[in-house]
Computed example of a mutant assay.
Amino acid sequence: MKFTTLLAGAMSLALTGAAFAQDDPVKVGFVYVGPIGDGGWTYQHDQGRLAVEEEFGDQVETVFQESVPEGADAERVITQMALGGADIIFTTSFGYMDPTNAVAAKFPDVKFEHATGYKREHPNVSTYDARFYEGRAVIGTIAGHMTETNKIGYIASFPIPEVIQGINSSFLHAQKVNPDVEMVVTWAYTWFDPAKEADAARAMIDQGVDVILQHTDSTAPQAAAQEANENGGRVFTFGQASDMAAFKPSPRIASIIDDWSPYYIKRVGELIDGTYEQTASWGGMPEGEVVIGEITAEVPAEVKAEAEAMIAAITDGSYHPFTGPITKQDGSVFLADGEVADDGALATMDFYVEGIEGDIPN
């Protein structure tokens, strides 16, 4: 799904040529890994699709297919979309990377946009991603302040650089405000499986975790925390990909929101006006793609102010979440004092930072 890779100099250009005729709607397709009602990742992509419809009206026609497994099914669905007349297809999960490129080779006149991947094997394939680690620095800061047991949990999906970035960013910033904090990482090996996610959350709570972060897409961890709180517990969570506002003001005390609308509107607009080019995009808070949702009153005012100051600093470029000194789990230096990680180092991140216990699975 959401593997973050943006190698320097990897952007190539391929102009589409003439703009679409005003009376010829652009057909825009979306392929989703989960249901549009997941309340998280897929829901947010579909909100982007709806934003395209609102922005361009009868200049566009959108189509989508939800709950498409990564692999052979994805290639079949993408092919059907291209055969159905789609002019541009957004494939919104990391595991769609190879199927997207395979179909793109057969349909050179169709534009393909792959979310969170890095392969652009054909001039009609672009990639796009978001700097989720920026948002995780903010919620890690809040988590470090909010834990009373000094145990925070992270429900991880797959051991790919994007997820590892999130784990490390969250822990580093929790540790900055609470040197005693520990992180429990549970690998769920799924992007969307409510039963698995709920089980992971409950197991963490049984281990004494009182703040849970997630890189999976359902609201099941929120529900598990809510259930624990109804039984006398004190567990906080953060919305993932979407606001998950139904669980405010607690257990959900803030959220990372992926706002794909600006990117989708930009790219479809460029296709309409004839300025579309092949790109590799990696936006974040400055571009409005990574947003922190409402920080609720459960969070003390001074902690909220600290989080808001970090949001402002990341947005204006004065702070980067991966700024040294940072040491790897094995004791070697990742970043010297004041050194900032470049995109290549982030895109290939395959280690835990010092202080996180356990191994990253292969």
Rank of each mutant, 00 (worst) to 15 (best):
S255T: 07
E230F: 12
S250M: 12
A203S: 15
I205K: 03
E230I: 13
V211M: 01
A220H: 03
H215R: 13
P262W: 03
T219W: 00
K248S: 12
S250H: 11
N231V: 14
Q240H: 13
E227V: 10
Y263K: 08
P249H: 10
A203G: 14
D243M: 08
D210H: 06
T216I: 15
K248E: 15
A225C: 06
D210C: 06
D206C: 08
R252K: 13
S261T: 09
V209S: 01
A223I: 07
M204I: 14
H215D: 14
A246L: 13
D259C: 02
D243G: 11
P262A: 07
D259W: 10
D206L: 10
H215P: 06
Y263L: 10
S250K: 12
A245F: 07
S250Q: 13
S218P: 03
G232S: 12
E227C: 08
V209A: 04
I253Q: 00
R234T: 15
G208C: 04
S255W: 01
M244N: 12
N231E: 13
D210L: 03
Q226D: 11
G233K: 06
F236L: 10
A245I: 11
A225D: 01
R252C: 12
Y263R: 05
P221V: 02
P262G: 06
V209Q: 00
A225W: 03
G239N: 00
D258C: 11
A254W: 00
N231P: 06
G232F: 07
A228P: 04
F238H: 04
G239T: 01
D258T: 14
P221N: 08
H215Y: 14
D206V: 14
T216C: 10
K248I: 09
K248D: 15
T237V: 07
R252F: 00
Y263M: 05
S218N: 07
L213E: 05
G239F: 03
T219P: 03
D210N: 10
F238A: 03
I256T: 06
A246K: 12
R234S: 15
A220G: 08
G233E: 09
Q240G: 01
F236A: 05
E227I: 06
A246H: 08
M244R: 05
E230H: 12
A225M: 04
F238G: 01
Q214N: 11
A220Q: 04
F238C: 00
T237E: 02
M204K: 05
T216V: 15
D210E: 09
I253H: 01
T237N: 08
F238I: 00
Q222M: 14
D210V: 05
S242K: 05
H215L: 09
D243L: 08
G233S: 07
D243A: 15
S255P: 03
A220I: 06
G239A: 08
Y263A: 05
Q222S: 09
G239Q: 04
